[in-house]
């Protein structure tokens, strides 16, 4: 488990993970905040349905793809936490080709 080294002092805002409300630090890197909140997996793969979590955290591996506010295939490691975000786990079937 990733854990904060220091108690967070900044404001937290409410987001929805597969419809469940969760409070995350506002403006934080979305992938890092979700990993720390224990959100797992981020997605399952289109080929075998295997679970995945962020691997590179810098935008090159695409293992952090999630649905944000109805738009699939967003790279969570390049996003920031905003109030009211609706986040959904992507299951294998989500059409990755749409993003090519």
């Amino acid at each position: 488990m990733f854990q904060p080294l220091e108690p967070g002092s900044g404001p937290r805002v409410r987001v929805f993970l597969d419809d469940t409300p969760v409070d995350l630090p506002e403006g934080a890197n979305l992938a890092a905040a979700l990993l720390t909140a224990g959100f797992s997996p981020f997605r399952t793969t289109p080929v075998s349905g295997a679970p995945r979590l962020p691997f590179c955290m810098m935008g090159v591996c695409f293992d952090c793809l999630i649905e944000i506010d109805g738009i699939p295939n967003r790279q969570a490691c390049l996003e920031q936490v905003r109030a009211g975000m609706r986040l959904r786990r992507q299951s294998g079937a989500a059409n990755l080709e749409a993003a090519e």
Binding site: F2, Q3, P4, L5, E6, M58, C77
Partner: peptide
């Protein structure tokens, strides 16, 4: 990057 951005570690 986890350390730099959110100050978290495992």
């Amino acid at each position: 990057i986890m350390l730099k951005t959110t100050g978290t570690a495992a």
